Simulated assay, not measured.
Amino acid sequence: MIKVSLHGAEFFAYHGFYPEEQLLGCRFVLDIDVEFYTTADLAADEITDTVNYEQLYNIAAEEMRITRKLLEPVAQCIANRIRHDHPYVENIRVELKKLNPLLKGSVAYSSVTITNNK
């Protein structure tokens, strides 16, 4: 099994339950892991024999631009798009962290993790 990961992808987006969160925006950090089997000869050194992490980033960037109230649908839509574009992928894990969420105390981040297995 091969695992391709994209960790620490940073975005500024307007996700949040409260109107001020959707107005002010917030910083987010995204981690994506995908696992798949291949029969390809990896020594051939062809990008078509793997999951291109640039494509993972582009999927995430497109979904992060769509404002949503909750983190769960953002992470789920990213996983769904990966599954659609790469149906051979066995396991998908998407963790979305909201940095410094608007709470009454100091919190480094809140997060949601979606796991999508075949």
Results as ranks from 00 to 15, higher is better:
1 M>H: 09
1 M>K: 08
2 I>T: 06
3 K>R: 10
4 V>C: 06
6 L>Q: 04
8 G>F: 13
8 G>S: 12
10 E>R: 15
10 E>F: 04
11 F>H: 11
11 F>G: 06
12 F>L: 05
12 F>T: 05
14 Y>C: 04
15 H>Q: 11
16 G>S: 06
17 F>C: 11
17 F>M: 07
21 E>W: 05
21 E>L: 03
21 E>M: 09
23 L>D: 09
27 R>D: 15
27 R>S: 13
27 R>C: 04
28 F>A: 09
29 V>F: 01
29 V>G: 04
30 L>P: 07
31 D>P: 09
32 I>H: 04
34 V>I: 08
36 F>I: 03
37 Y>P: 00
39 T>M: 06
39 T>N: 15
41 D>G: 03
42 L>S: 01
43 A>E: 02
43 A>W: 00
44 A>V: 02
44 A>M: 02
46 E>T: 00
47 I>H: 01
47 I>Q: 00
47 I>P: 02
47 I>L: 01
48 T>I: 04
48 T>F: 02
48 T>W: 00
49 D>C: 01
50 T>V: 01
50 T>S: 03
50 T>D: 01
50 T>G: 01
53 Y>H: 08
53 Y>G: 06
53 Y>E: 05
55 Q>I: 13
57 Y>C: 08
59 I>A: 04
60 A>C: 00
60 A>Q: 00
61 A>T: 01
61 A>F: 03
61 A>Y: 02
62 E>N: 10
64 M>N: 06
65 R>I: 05
68 R>H: 07
69 K>H: 14
69 K>D: 14
70 L>F: 10
70 L>M: 10
74 V>S: 12
75 A>T: 12
75 A>P: 11
76 Q>N: 05
76 Q>A: 13
76 Q>E: 15
78 I>T: 07
78 I>A: 05
79 A>L: 06
79 A>C: 09
81 R>E: 12
84 H>L: 10
85 D>R: 14
85 D>K: 14
85 D>E: 13
87 P>V: 12
87 P>W: 12
89 V>Y: 10
89 V>L: 09
90 E>Y: 08
90 E>V: 09
90 E>A: 11
92 I>Y: 13
93 R>N: 14
93 R>T: 15
94 V>M: 11
96 L>Y: 13
98 K>I: 08
98 K>C: 06
99 L>D: 03
100 N>T: 13
101 P>Y: 00
102 L>W: 08
102 L>C: 10
103 L>G: 04
103 L>N: 10
105 G>T: 15
108 A>T: 08
112 V>L: 06
115 T>W: 03
116 N>C: 03
117 N>H: 10
118 K>Y: 07
